[in-house]
């Protein structure tokens, strides 16, 4: 397996449980040592370092966990201070930095509480603050939102995106949730049985999934295939999948193509949404009318930059 993550990007690894994604992530900071091969982070080849050097390098790699892994016997402040004390900062420096971090993750009110007194989302915020304490180059997220409810997940993802944009930290995350990839990742690798089966920009991989596993994940958020087939069998006209990416999403292209032709259009299913900041749409439409007119519409749509394929 060969994987390169670019500086400053949010890279997602998605796979079903047991696919090897967690092992892959843990190889990045050598919590798990690969049997062969090398791991380089920010130009340093970790696999060749001594124990002590590795400890130093790990301080530049933040990590957050599905179950947060906070010290239960320490307050929020003490938890965040932990990596700073490891880095041997002075008492005053530690106190200052902890205050900055509490502010960054929005937990100013909760500094003196213990983890057991916090909600899941708050615990993960502590985890994030702790991971960012030593100004890391990279943040590893091990299923960081899998133990959280959907609303809290969105808030934590927004925080991660904000950190990536403000601080320029490269984020490598693993998840089994499509939603996570869709909302914050730039690039994605789909992993199955210990190998990468598909890799690329999120928008490409998920609008044109090639591998069955990728298809599975896409279907999770779309309507299921069998429902779709049932719907299609009951229709009279010709049915097409139309998809488009970018600014055209908000243009009246479909209307313009159809209006003069006399062809009737019905939208059977549709999604118009965004992947990270890029708008995209995917519609299943039915055209009822003459063959020549419909072909004319298809040509027009394609000319305007839409992707059209006929479904049978």
């Amino acid at each position: 397996m060969d994987l390169t993550v670019r500086k400053g990007e949010i890279f997602g690894i998605i796979g079903h449980s047991g696919a090897g994604k967690s092992t892959l992530l843990r190889c990045v900071n050598l919590l798990e040592r690969p049997t062969s091969g090398s791991v380089k982070v920010a130009g340093v080849e970790l696999t060749k370092l001594s124990d002590r050097q590795l400890q130093q390098e790990r301080r530049k790699i933040g990590m957050i966990f599905q179950h947060f892994n906070l010290l239960s016997m320490a307050t929020v402040r003490e938890n965040i201070a932990f990596p700073l004390k490891l880095a041997k900062l002075s008492k005053a420096e530690v106190a200052n930095r902890v205050n900055e971090l509490l502010q960054l993750v929005g937990l100013e009110q909760h500094g003196d509480k213990y983890p057991a007194q916090l909600s899941g989302g708050q615990k993960q915020r502590v985890g994030i603050a702790r991971a960012l304490a030593n100004n890391p180059d990279v943040l590893l997220c091990d299923e960081a939102t899998s133990a959280l409810d959907p609303q809290t997940t969105s808030a934590i993802l927004a925080l991660l995106l904000d950190i990536n944009q403000k601080l320029g930290i490269t984020i490598l995350l693993i998840t089994h949730e499509m939603q996570v990839i869709r909302s914050i990742c730039d690039r994605v690798a789909v992993i199955d049985g210990g190998t990468i089966v598909e890799i690329g920009d999120v928008i490409d991989v998920f609008l044109k999934p090639q591998h069955p596993v990728t298809q599975d994940f896409v279907d999770e958020v779309a309507e299921s295939q069998s429902d779709m087939r049932q719907l299609m069998s009951a229709r009279q006209g010709r049915i097409f999948r139309v998809h488009y990416v970018g600014n055209v999403t908000y243009e009246p292209i479909l209307y313009n193509a159809v209006k003069a032709s006399g062809v009737q259009v019905a939208i059977l299913q549709g999604t118009i949404s965004r992947m990270k900041q890029t708008p995209y749409g995917e519609l299943i439409v039915e055209f009822i009318g003459g063959s020549a007119e419909i072909d004319g519409i298809l040509a027009q749509l394609r000319q305007d930059g839409l992707n059209v394929e006929e479904l049978t």
């Binding site: 590795l54 400890q55 130093q56 990590m63 966990f65 892994n69 932990f82 490891l86 880095a87 590893l140």
Partner: peptide
């Protein structure tokens, strides 16, 4: 003691005595 907490400490660059 939760293994995850020990693992988190290792990931943060803690030595064995830490």
């Amino acid at each position: 003691v939760d293994r995850g907490v020990i693992e988190a400490a290792v990931a943060m660059g803690a030595s064995k005595s830490d």
